[in-house]
């Protein structure tokens, strides 16, 4: 999953941290190393939704990894959770598609996408249909 991103510019980790502070204060910095950061916090994707504890793990220059720590995500009786990797991370964008690069701010991309994912997950749980954007069938 965490493929190295080829990008002309890598947004410095300090900049990522600053923007997380101002743009997504509900996600708190849990660990900070020279080339790696972990944020955790509680997201409420809609007024009707559960409150989800999520963790973003970011190694500078690699794809950020997002996990839901609580409550546990559940599959529907008939189907596995859509857009969900075997290692428990969320598929928020196709890797290497350029939708996200290391030049992008996590606070302005990954963070809102997590809410979008969680919302569509809940609607999928309720209806069996995923309504979020999906790759166009080729």
């Amino acid at each position: 999953m965490a493929s190295r991103l080829r990008s002309t510019y890598v947004l410095p980790l300090l900049k990522q941290r600053m923007e997380m502070c101002t743009e997504a204060p509900y996600l708190k910095l849990k660990h900070a190393f020279k080339d790696r950061c972990v944020w955790e916090g509680t997201v409420e994707p809609s007024g009707l939704s559960e409150r989800y504890v999520v963790r973003i793990t970011y190694r500078l220059g690699y794809d950020p990894q997002v996990r839901v720590l609580n409550p546990p995500l559940v599959r529907r009786a008939d189907r596995p959770i859509p857009h969900f990797n075997g290692d428990g991370t969320l598929c928020l964008y196709p890797v290497d598609s350029g939708e996200w690069t290391a030049a992008d701010s996590i606070a302005y991309t990954i963070v809102p996408w997590i809410s979008d994912w969680l919302f569509h997950y809940e609607v999928w749980m309720a209806t069996g249909v995923w309504h979020g954007d999906e790759p166009k069938p080729t």
Partner: peptide, 12 residues
């Protein structure tokens, strides 16, 4: 408010 930038949920 932070806008939700375009993205495509991917994976099966």
């Amino acid at each position: 408010i932070t806008p939700v930038r375009p993205h495509t949920f991917h994976g099966k």
